[in-house]
Design a protein around this nucleic acid. Structure first.
Lengths: 228, 228
DNA sequence: TGCAATTCTTGACATATGTCAAAATATGAG
DNA sequence: CTCATATTTTGACATATGTCAAGAATTGCA
């Protein structure tokens, strides 16, 4: 069984109960994530989770009144954990906005090389496409990442408007996440990840620094203007 | 029921049989794709496909000896269809390598705004993570896209080495695909897609044209060299 | 129009799933 | 230790799934 390591998987604390109760609660969620990663949502059954927990399926119904409930807790825990991780990763960055951007990009790409992240996110994206609550969790997660990019871009190029910043943030964030799909754990271009990381840092840093206000205008809108 | 439009869904032709047989065969595959898109792989059951086909579940077993067989045919049809679409989309591009790159990027992003593509690919990525055959189909699809980028980049900047070209192709391809996850059909940043498209074209075109040989070197390897 | 090959339905099977109630067991404050 | 509370197992339920065999219905060539 491959190693799974969330830096920290954060749970909403349980009200009342014994210590054992909290253990069981967290074990179920951790194991559920593991099953989701290793087998996909399609095969994430209560009996499978229970078996890997060393307990019986009925016991999960004691902690979660339905599978839907379990999945919700799962999504919240995952979303919250990644938000926390991003927060901590960017908190330690030096004052230099250039290295902040480089560090943020590198952190996300590095995380994308783990089996967990590489296998988990397609499941999340699929879930988000068919479930409103899942979509909210994923959106929330990415909004917090988007905000980090927005801040850094503002420092790097103060001349840009809020709209320009937002589009650039979305552009860079989504590009970076896309790289994980192609060069993440077990993917075809996995070996090129170091080069991709260096390339992404160079390309986006340069682009943000040299961007002029209106950079995010659509192509047709950027047609040559009439001179007065 | 939202409209689904594969430009063309290509099938491996059936051997022998009546005309009705071919119809049923194609109907099942088309419907299976529709169910996969609308409900996700988890809920892509034979009975659901059959019901949407207006036939009984048992009949699918006549065309496909197992569900696994159906899924394989599905993946091949999808992979082949996208390869064909990419091929045709780039065939019509003018001789100018700049507009070729712009057109290819625009085509992929435009396709990513459709419900079909936006919902389908997370399913494919998830499948590829847990199934060898699915992984092969997805890899094959992306390899053919990668090759198009590689060719165009070679025209745009002949000074680059094959390694540089390949890394840049992977970088741009994955970035573009990532944008679909964030600004595709129904996604949070959907409204920003026109700006993202313009931004991506500007950023990557500029980057490729101005790239110097060795651009894909890792950051540590690009440390200042000792002068002799 | 016959009639053999093809397509489709019927109905069943074994197995799997989420859920639940009742009984059994474990926990830890007093 | 006692015992009320919390946790866990047991065993069942209704429903769902992929698969298959046998028979009914359809197709299209002669």
């Amino acid at each position: 069984m491959p190693d799974l390591n969330f830096s920290v998987l954060r749970f909403v604390p349980r009200e009342g109960g014994y210590a054992r109760g909290q253990e069981g609660f967290e074990l179920i969620l951790k194991t559920a994530v593991s099953v989701l990663v290793e087998h996909g949502y399609k095969d994430m059954t209560l009996r499978r989770i229970a078996k890997e927990c060393g307990m019986k399926a009925g016991n999960i119904s004691y902690y979660f009144k339905s599978k839907d409930d379990l999945v919700r807790a799962l999504l919240q825990a995952i979303s919250g954990s990644y938000e926390t991780a991003i927060s901590e990763a960017t908190a330690g960055a030096g004052g230099d906005p250039e290295s902040k951007l480089t560090q943020l990009i590198s952190f996300i790409l590095q995380d994308g090389t783990t089996r967990q992240t590489s296998y988990l996110f397609p499941e999340l994206w699929s879930l988000a496409n068919h479930d409103t609550f899942a979509k909210q969790c994923v959106d929330e997660l990415y909004l917090s990442e988007h905000q980090r990019f927005d801040e850094i871009i503002g420092e790097l190029n103060p001349a840009l408007s809020a709209d320009d910043r937002s589009v650039l943030s979305t552009f860079i964030l989504s590009s970076i996440e896309g790289i994980g799909v192609f060069a993440g754990y077990g993917k075809y271009w996995q070996d090129a990840m170091p080069q991709l990381q260096a390339t992404a840092c160079r390309c986006f840093l340069e682009f943000v620094k040299s961007a002029k206000p209106g950079v995010s205008g659509t192509l047709s809108a950027s047609a040559p203007e009439l001179k007065p």
